[in-house]
């Protein structure tokens, strides 16, 4: 987008999830995106076999946040040898839940007329950040106090050259909302909130010091294992 235009959330480029040699010639690459509040798995299917492929279907294993296909896989026509087709598969978050390791791991089964194939992929937790994740300021202060300090995780984010306002704007495109900003001893302290699709809240303090390319990120969340994934998202959003 141009100056002042929202650029939307960052989407990781597609990577190969299922190499053709492991799937009798079917190659699958993909990524995840949240577009206008709807989660999508974006897929490219390539037929590297010598015969036509058809009758595609997809299924997910139970996973940490209940991700499930919200409809069938829309492969419009049989896929000819050397042909690639691209599609977006809308996802719901009301599927069966089972805690995965890592938390953001997703096990997928894809079938076609030849066989059934399995692969695992990992989604950025930011696809689960909902649009109404701006916490009331009063609630933020109470919750921040309420979560004990030993549940606080701290991370450094290096080589970041945005000022705090630019960082805040970029994070908001990914549904990370700045609730308050204070400047103390030359450091901008941003207090931010995130809400996941399953109702889990994440509270964040981001410290940005003018001229210092290393940000300090402090994350408080009652589900402590979410913090590391939130850190990964900050790295991804702030550096792309």
């Amino acid at each position: 987008g141009g100056v002042g235009m929202p650029t939307g959330a960052y989407v990781v480029p597609k990577t190969i999830w299922l190499p053709a040699m492991k799937a009798k010639g079917l190659e699958i690459s993909g990524t995840f995106a949240r577009r206008a509040g709807v989660l999508h798995m974006e897929l490219s299917l390539t037929n590297k076999a010598m015969s036509v492929m058809s009758d595609f279907a997809v299924q997910f294993n139970r996973n940490s946040f209940g991700l499930a296909p919200a409809g069938p896989l829309q492969v419009v026509a049989p896929l000819n040898p050397n042909q690639t087709t691209e599609m977006g598969l809308p996802l719901s978050t009301v599927g069966p839940v089972m805690k995965m390791e890592p938390l953001n791991n997703l096990q997928v089964a894809v079938k076609n007329n030849i066989d059934v194939f399995y692969f695992s992929c990992q989604y950025p937790i930011s696809i689960l950040f909902v649009e109404d994740g701006k916490m009331e300021r009063q609630v933020f202060l109470a919750t921040w106090k309420d979560i004990p300090n030993d549940s606080e995780a701290q991370y450094q984010i290096k080589d970041c050259h945005l000022n705090s306002d630019a960082a805040s704007a970029r994070l908001q495109s990914s549904n990370i909302f700045t609730i308050a900003k204070r400047t103390v001893d030359g450091q901008d302290m941003l207090y931010q909130s995130i809400k996941l699709t399953n109702g889990i809240w994440v509270l964040v303090e981001l410290r940005v010091q003018t001229g210092n390319p290393t940000y300090m990120l402090s994350v408080k969340c009652r589900a402590a294992e979410v913090s590391q994934l939130v850190h990964q998202c900050y790295e991804m959003v702030l550096k792309n």
């Binding site: 204070r182 103390v184 001893d185 207090y191």
Partner: peptide, 20 residues
């Protein structure tokens, strides 16, 4: 008044985090 109180509370939080 509540808003003022919240502004003040965030200032205190930031201050306490920087100079504990």
């Amino acid at each position: 008044e509540l808003e003022d109180g919240l502004d003040e509370a965030f200032s205190r939080l930031a201050e306490s985090r920087t100079n504990p």
